[in-house]
């Protein structure tokens, strides 16, 4: 029984974190049609930023400032947002393919930095000393408490995204998405709107990274590989329904369920020495699932339901 509860808490926490990331992507892709395939970069930068600000002790890498978690969250959003500002400035006026390529480039370079700059990030050994308050997360009620906090953060993020979507600002974003060429012809004004959306989405992804950091209490470059930190989130948003904030969250919960469910299945069917093959099978399955969704239900489970502009 206790195992089941722990599993449930773990599941909801991770699904909630992915829900935040999926909301961030929805702002960029769902609202404005910007193709960010380097989610991992903003996710990782958020995670490490928060870790650096909040970690305690004498560390072999950056950190040890010991700020409260809330400061870590803010730092994550700011640093990810600033990074997004520069990536966006360069690519957002070009065809969407260029943003896709540039964003994957950023993600790869961030991964190289995380791996190689031990003095800053701890390198492949990972970043230690994160967050005193929620250490030993499975002792006592901390895990439950953290899960509740994740849900609260997710709820706030959802509320803000929903407000943004329904606002005149959101309407402009949709107009940009529907007609990229006309939007580009609008010039500077359109660039500024796109930048705002890109920065907001990336800041939310950074927040997701921070929430992730304090949940695991340890981060290393491996956690931000393109599969787990970019691809899975795309599948979540497309499955749930691009452009729909509820869909983004629903997709995160369902796909995280599928992802952890397949782990359960492969580990119970396959013998222990085939565990690595099991992991590949799961990736294969998720890849095929994405193609199936794109082919049969590209609008997702909860299709976008854009509010009609007031008739006046």
């Amino acid at each position: 029984m206790e195992g089941l509860i722990n599993f449930g808490i773990l599941f909801l926490t991770m699904a909630g974190i992915y829900g935040i990331l999926s909301l961030g992507l929805n702002v960029q892709w769902g609202f404005t049609g910007m193709l960010n395939v380097g989610i991992a970069a903003f996710f990782a930068v958020g995670a490490y930023s928060s870790a650096i600000v909040t970690s305690v002790g004498d560390l072999p890498h950056w950190g040890g400032i010991g700020a409260p978690m809330i400061i870590g969250f803010a730092a994550a959003m700011i640093v990810s947002g600033i990074m997004a500002f520069f990536v966006g400035l360069i690519t957002l006026n070009l065809r969407s393919d260029y943003l896709a390529i540039a964003s994957i480039g950023i993600a790869e370079i961030i991964r190289l930095v995380l791996k190689n700059e031990e003095w800053m990030t701890g390198g492949v050994n990972g970043f230690t000393g994160i967050s005193g308050k929620f250490n030993n997360i499975f002792d006592g009620g901390h895990a439950l408490l953290y899960m509740i906090m994740v849900m609260v953060v997710l709820g706030i993020a959802y509320f803000l995204c929903e407000r943004a979507y329904k606002s005149p600002w959101g309407r402009v974003q949709r107009a940009i998405r529907e007609n990229e060429i006309a939007a580009r012809a609008m010039g500077k004004n359109s660039l500024s709107f796109r930048l705002q959306s890109f920065v907001l989405g990336s800041a939310i992804m950074g927040l997701g990274g921070a929430v992730y950091t304090h949940f695991t209490g340890f981060i290393s470059p491996e956690a931000f590989d393109p599969l787990l930190a970019t691809f899975l989130i795309w599948v979540m948003l497309i499955a749930g329904g691009s452009g729909n904030n509820k869909g983004a969250i629903l997709g995160a919960f369902i796909i995280w369920g599928v992802w952890s469910g397949t782990e359960f299945i492969t580990s119970s069917i396959l013998p222990a020495d085939m565990a690595t093959q099991g992991a590949y099978l799961r990736v294969l399955f998720i890849g095929i699932l994405l193609q199936a969704i794109l082919l049969t239900r590209p609008q997702g489970l909860l299709p976008e339901n854009a509010p009609q502009p007031d008739k006046d």
């Binding site: 193709l35 896709a100 497309i238 990736v283 294969l284 890849g287 193609q291």
Partner: peptide, 11 residues
């Protein structure tokens, strides 16, 4: 197509 090809890369 781009998104699909990203999925194809992982497959």
């Amino acid at each position: 197509l781009l998104i699909s090809s990203f999925g194809m890369a992982l497959i």
